[in-house]
Computed example of a mutant assay.
Amino acid sequence: MDNVVDENKVNQVVESGKGSQGQGGRGYELPLLLFAGFRTLIDRLHAELARQGHPDLRPVHGFALQAIAAPGAGHPTASEVGRRLGVSKQAAGKTIDRLVALGYAERTDDPSDARRKTIRLTAHGVDALTRSAAVFDELHADWARTLGAGRLGQLEDGLRAVVAADSFRLDAASWFGGM
């Protein structure tokens, strides 16, 4: 059973896979299924990362690590990390503080401007991202075994077709009230 929101009945409980027949479909299920698929991947990722020596990492940390290590970014400031995540400098700073405390990132002086502090990943942070990539590859392979490689490829192609190129951002945390 799943909780869903429908225009006539708020938090109506419906059986999974059965739409509201009188109202013409299951359109409301798509975002719920996409989100549940996302949560399934992220929860499995973090369970495996915990087993591999990263028990304190949380999903928001993964977004921040990606923002810090973005290709071609050099070593960003907290403001730049905040922009990449779509959150305030203060919210990014709090997450960076936590990553520093956990040993995943460090603040360094910018050699070209002594007033600026840049953020970079430590070896522990790089290890977490490297392990994350390997775990995501394993999870992708699991989905391919479950759905079939062709169906999974079609799903990915279909999502690429409907997702605007400029909407692929790391700022999902801002949807939930910041970091």
Rank of each mutant, 00 (worst) to 15 (best):
S88R: 07
V81R: 03
G103C: 05
T122P: 05
L121A: 11
R83F: 13
L99S: 02
R84V: 01
V87A: 05
A92M: 02
P111A: 12
S88L: 10
L102R: 09
E80G: 10
K117L: 14
V126M: 10
G103I: 03
A114D: 11
Y104G: 01
K89H: 12
T122V: 09
V126F: 04
G93H: 05
A78Y: 02
S112W: 08
R115T: 15
V126K: 12
A114S: 14
G103N: 03
A123M: 08
G103P: 01
G93Y: 06
R120P: 00
G125R: 08
D97T: 11
G93N: 10
L85W: 06
D109H: 07
P111T: 07
L121S: 09
V126T: 11
A78T: 08
T95M: 13
T118S: 02
T95K: 10
V126S: 09
K89F: 06
D113L: 00
V87L: 10
E106L: 07
T118P: 00
G93E: 09
G93F: 09
K89N: 13
D113M: 00
D110M: 05
D97G: 10
L102W: 06
D113H: 01
P76R: 03
S79I: 05
S112M: 08
H75S: 14
L121G: 08
